[in-house]
Computed example of a mutant assay.
Amino acid sequence: MHCPFCRHTDTKVLDSRVAEDGCSIRRRRSCQSCEQRFTTLELMQLTVLKRSGATEAFDRDKAIRGVRKACGGRPVSEDDLARLGQQVEDALRASGQAEFPAHQIGMAILEPLRELDDVAFLRFASVYKQYESAEDFEIEIASLRRHRSEQLASMLDGGELEPTSAGSG
């Protein structure tokens, strides 16, 4: 580590702490030459293993670009996409791995996208799950319906929603 003040290469770590985000380490350092103190932030580099065998740094914006296409014409805002990108990156970091096959990143996008928009989810899933027939879509739609029913039942059980009686009004 080079000192940002004198560029000397010999620095001493005085203190190390996990940062508030839980995904990085904050280190307080001291230069052995000029004795200036400074802070560094270390973040785990996520890499993507492409089908060709090449690797590249994970780019949240690139992941969002693919999702943006699936969200075309849907009521999904740029803020929604930014939150989705953050959720995906957080999930990848939480796994403890540093390298991910490109396909695994696409699959990691599916869960938060399902919560965001059903149609965009189906569009995106059709590519990443390689749907080959209408039956594949039917199976996925049935899965979406089960998921929504389970969510509704959970919210009713948890008291988040009040059941309404049909025909009253």
Results as ranks from 00 to 15, higher is better:
17 R>I: 01
25 I>S: 06
88 V>L: 04
46 L>R: 02
114 R>C: 07
29 R>M: 04
35 E>A: 08
80 D>A: 05
38 F>Y: 13
4 P>S: 05
108 A>W: 07
8 H>A: 15
68 R>H: 07
37 R>E: 02
66 G>H: 01
45 Q>S: 07
96 G>A: 05
107 M>F: 13
18 V>R: 10
62 K>S: 10
55 T>E: 15
102 A>I: 08
34 C>A: 01
79 D>A: 15
84 L>P: 06
11 T>M: 00
17 R>G: 04
38 F>L: 02
91 A>F: 03
39 T>D: 05
80 D>S: 06
100 F>L: 04
50 K>Y: 00
49 L>M: 11
106 G>K: 04
23 C>H: 14
69 K>E: 14
50 K>L: 12
73 G>Y: 06
27 R>P: 06
98 A>N: 10
20 E>D: 13
116 L>W: 07
17 R>Y: 00
9 T>K: 07
89 E>G: 10
55 T>N: 08
107 M>A: 13
46 L>V: 05
72 G>K: 14
104 Q>A: 15
20 E>G: 13
42 E>I: 02
97 Q>Y: 02
86 Q>V: 06
107 M>E: 15
71 C>F: 00
69 K>I: 14
58 F>D: 14
48 V>H: 08
84 L>H: 09
70 A>H: 07
6 C>G: 08
23 C>Q: 12
109 I>S: 09
97 Q>M: 01
53 G>R: 04
84 L>A: 07
27 R>M: 03
10 D>R: 11
115 E>G: 15
72 G>F: 12
33 S>G: 03
45 Q>I: 11
43 L>G: 00
19 A>I: 00
56 E>C: 05
37 R>C: 02
41 L>V: 10
86 Q>A: 14
90 D>L: 06
33 S>M: 09
41 L>N: 12
70 A>M: 05
78 E>L: 11
